[in-house]
Amino acid sequence: YGAAVGPRTTVFVLGDARTNMSDPNLPAVRELARSARRVYWLNPEPRTQWGTGDSAAPEYAELVEMHECRTARQLGALIGGLLPV
């Protein structure tokens, strides 16, 4: 759906940023970040686990804004920080 992303688009990525030992495809994330107005990655893993094992979270976080988001409280704080738009 890359053609659907443009300068007025905000993208939310929901996931743990684990690659399952595959290529993290950083060029695709870089292109997404370049095309979209904003990209927020909501990662359910504790920040202390980012970069462990097959986690590409530190690499992705260099390209897009990544937030630990494991609880309703964290999600509420994140949304509260984004509003008003």
Score class of each variant (00 low, 15 high):
Val39Trp: 02
Val13Phe: 07
Leu26Ala: 00
Glu68Leu: 06
Pro44Gln: 06
Tyr40Ala: 09
Ala77Leu: 13
Met66Pro: 00
Glu31Gln: 15
Trp41Gln: 00
Ile79Phe: 01
Thr71Phe: 03
Gly6Asn: 10
Arg47His: 11
Ala28Asp: 08
Glu68Tyr: 02
Asp23Gln: 06
Arg47Tyr: 06
Phe12Met: 05
His67Tyr: 08
Pro46Lys: 06
Val85Gln: 12
Leu83Trp: 04
Arg34Leu: 04
Asp16His: 13
Tyr1Gly: 07
Arg70Val: 08
Thr10Leu: 09
Val85Trp: 15
Arg38Glu: 14
Glu68Asn: 04
Asp16Leu: 02
Ala3Glu: 09
Trp41Val: 00
Gly81Ile: 09
Asn25Met: 11
Gly76Phe: 08
Asn20Ser: 07
Arg38Met: 05
Phe12Cys: 03
Thr48Tyr: 07
Val5Lys: 04
Tyr1Met: 15
Ala61Trp: 05
Glu31Ser: 01
Gly15Met: 11
Ala77Pro: 01
Pro7Trp: 07
Gly6Lys: 06
Ala72Asn: 13
Arg38His: 12
Arg38Ser: 14
Pro44Glu: 00
Gly53Val: 03
Gly53Leu: 13
Gly76Tyr: 14
Phe12Trp: 14
Pro84His: 05
His67Asn: 14
Leu32Thr: 14
Gly6Glu: 13
Ser55Leu: 04
Leu82Asn: 12
Arg47Ile: 11
Gly51His: 12
Arg30Lys: 15
Asn25Lys: 13
